[in-house]
Computed example of a mutant assay.
Amino acid sequence: MTFATPDLMDAAPNAAVIELQFRNLGAHPRFSGRAVTIKCHEDNSLVKQCVAEPGDGRVIVVDGGGSLRQALLGDMLAAEAADNGWAGLVINGAIRDVDDIAVTALGVQALGVTPRKTDKRGEGQRDIVVHIGGARIAPGDYIYADNNGVVVSAEPLL
C-alpha cells in the first residue's frame, strides 16, 4: 500500500494530525493500520504484553507522556512485534537499540532515543482513548505514518 500523509490530509482535511516531531526509526518508513492504544509512563510492561499478541497489521500507539528518560521499545520487543505481524508503533516517548530497530521489518516513530531501559512495574492502561500532540486516538482508529508525520482517522482514508 502506497500513500503519503500530505495527500491523505488534502483528501480528508478533517482527519487529525499528531502535532509532534517524531523521528522515523524503523525499517518501514511508511506504515498504517488500526490503532491499539497504551498509556504508560516509563514502564513498558504493557508494550511487552501487546507485541507478544498477533498484530494482524495493526499499529501500537503508546502515550509515554513524552518522556525521553527511559526507552519504551528496544530491539527484542521490536523483533517480536515484527515476527507477530504488527505494522508498527507510534511512541510518544523514547526507544533504544536504534541500529537494530532500523533493520527490523517494522515501522517505528518515536520522539527520541535513550540507552536506558524502563522499569517493569506492570503499570499503565490499554485500549483507552489517548491524547497525543493535539490528536485524539481511540482504539480501532486508522493510523497512517510516514516521513511527513502521523495522521489519525476514525474512518479509513484508503
Score class of each variant (00 low, 15 high):
3 F>G: 10
6 P>K: 09
8 L>V: 14
9 M>W: 05
9 M>C: 04
10 D>C: 07
12 A>T: 12
15 A>Y: 01
15 A>Q: 01
16 A>D: 01
16 A>N: 02
20 L>P: 00
20 L>H: 08
22 F>S: 10
27 A>V: 04
27 A>I: 11
27 A>K: 15
27 A>N: 14
27 A>R: 13
30 R>F: 13
31 F>Y: 15
32 S>D: 07
32 S>P: 00
34 R>C: 06
34 R>Y: 05
34 R>W: 02
34 R>G: 09
35 A>L: 03
35 A>D: 04
36 V>A: 02
37 T>L: 07
38 I>W: 06
38 I>A: 10
40 C>L: 11
40 C>R: 11
42 E>C: 09
43 D>Q: 10
43 D>V: 05
44 N>H: 14
44 N>I: 07
45 S>I: 09
46 L>W: 02
47 V>Y: 03
49 Q>M: 12
49 Q>S: 11
50 C>A: 14
53 E>D: 08
55 G>R: 13
59 V>R: 01
60 I>S: 05
61 V>I: 10
61 V>T: 02
63 D>I: 01
67 S>V: 09
68 L>Q: 07
68 L>P: 01
69 R>F: 07
71 A>K: 02
74 G>L: 03
74 G>R: 08
74 G>S: 05
75 D>L: 07
76 M>D: 08
78 A>I: 01
79 A>M: 05
81 A>R: 09
81 A>D: 08
82 A>N: 07
82 A>Y: 00
82 A>H: 07
83 D>Y: 05
85 G>L: 03
88 G>W: 08
89 L>T: 04
90 V>H: 00
91 I>Q: 03
92 N>P: 06
94 A>L: 04
96 R>H: 11
97 D>Q: 04
98 V>H: 08
98 V>T: 15
99 D>G: 06
99 D>N: 13
100 D>E: 15
103 V>M: 10
105 A>C: 10
106 L>S: 10
107 G>C: 06
107 G>A: 11
107 G>H: 01
109 Q>K: 10
111 L>G: 03
111 L>D: 01
114 T>R: 07
116 R>W: 03
118 T>K: 12
118 T>A: 10
119 D>G: 03
120 K>W: 12
120 K>P: 00
122 G>K: 13
124 G>H: 13
126 R>N: 04
127 D>E: 15
127 D>T: 01
128 I>R: 06
129 V>F: 01
130 V>S: 00
130 V>F: 00
131 H>N: 14
132 I>M: 02
133 G>Y: 00
134 G>Y: 01
135 A>P: 00
136 R>E: 13
138 A>W: 00
138 A>K: 06
143 I>E: 00
145 A>Q: 06
145 A>G: 04
145 A>I: 06
146 D>Q: 11
146 D>R: 11
147 N>M: 14
149 G>P: 11
149 G>K: 06
150 V>E: 01
152 V>Q: 00
152 V>C: 03
153 S>H: 05
153 S>N: 02
154 A>R: 12
155 E>P: 00
156 P>K: 12
157 L>G: 07
157 L>K: 07
158 L>C: 07
158 L>E: 12
158 L>D: 12
